[in-house]
């Protein structure tokens, strides 16, 4: 099945499915609405718990407002639900922390994740937020594969890695943003040092 044909129903674009299964409605933070099958939702621990707690009937699903997912935009959520629909019913892997499990990226997932780094970042973030273990696995594997065969210099470019200096600067900025008084103290200290004082006190 191609990515385009994955059975996520984007309300604006597609018709309501004919299968007599329960389809929940979700809304992204940019007000895009999606219908997702009950089985597909099981891939997300977060959403599964949420719908279980809500205890919706088929009528509720149709009549009540769509469930809002505040932190994820429509473009990302569409990818997430396409993935869930494609992998519905599959067992959810359990990480027992022993020898690492070998992760292979299926063809469907590879096509789904053939996206720019920004969107990939959002997808990983969404997979983590919605607790979709296998999507998180494959998306992290995708990021890991980006590093394969790269030198440290190339890695810096691929991952946009900051250097030690940039890390230091970022750390300082973060500290200062947290505590403006610390900056004043540091400046005062530097000033005294310039004036030749040995001790701050």
């Amino acid at each position: 099945m191609s990515v385009e044909n994955a059975p996520v129903v984007d309300v604006d674009e597609a018709a309501i499915p004919v299968e007599k299964k329960m389809y929940y409605r979700f809304e992204s933070n940019d007000k895009k609405e999606f219908r997702v099958s009950e089985l597909a939702i099981q891939q997300s621990e977060t959403l599964n718990r949420l719908v279980e707690a809500m205890g919706y009937t088929s009528e509720d699903v149709e009549n009540k407002p769509a469930i809002a997912i505040e932190n994820i935009d429509g473009k990302t959520l569409k990818l997430v639900f396409q993935w869930c629909e494609h992998h519905k019913g599959e067992a959810i892997p359990v990480d027992d922390g022993s020898v690492p499990k070998i992760v292979e990226i299926p063809e469907f997932d590879a096509k789904l994740m053939d996206i720019d780094n920004g969107l990939l970042f959002k997808l990983i973030w969404a997979a983590d937020y919605l607790n979709i273990v296998q999507l998180l696995n494959v998306s992290c594997k995708k990021v890991a594969n980006m590093a394969q065969g790269k030198t440290p210099a190339q890695l810096r470019r691929v991952y946009l890695l900051p250097s030690d200096e940039e890390d230091e600067a970022a750390k300082r900025a973060a500290q200062e943003a947290q505590d403006p008084r610390a900056r004043e103290v540091e400046e005062e200290f530097e000033e005294r040092k310039r004036q030749g004082g040995n001790s701050f006190f």
Binding site: C140, A147, G149, P152, L155, L161
Partner: peptide
């Protein structure tokens, strides 16, 4: 999660990128 999935060579190379890494 990404580091756990890196091959060993890439892991060593990432290690060289910065002190934080």
């Amino acid at each position: 999660s990404v580091i756990k999935k890196l091959d060993y060579k890439s892991r060593c190379r990432l290690r060289k990128c910065s002190k934080l890494d």
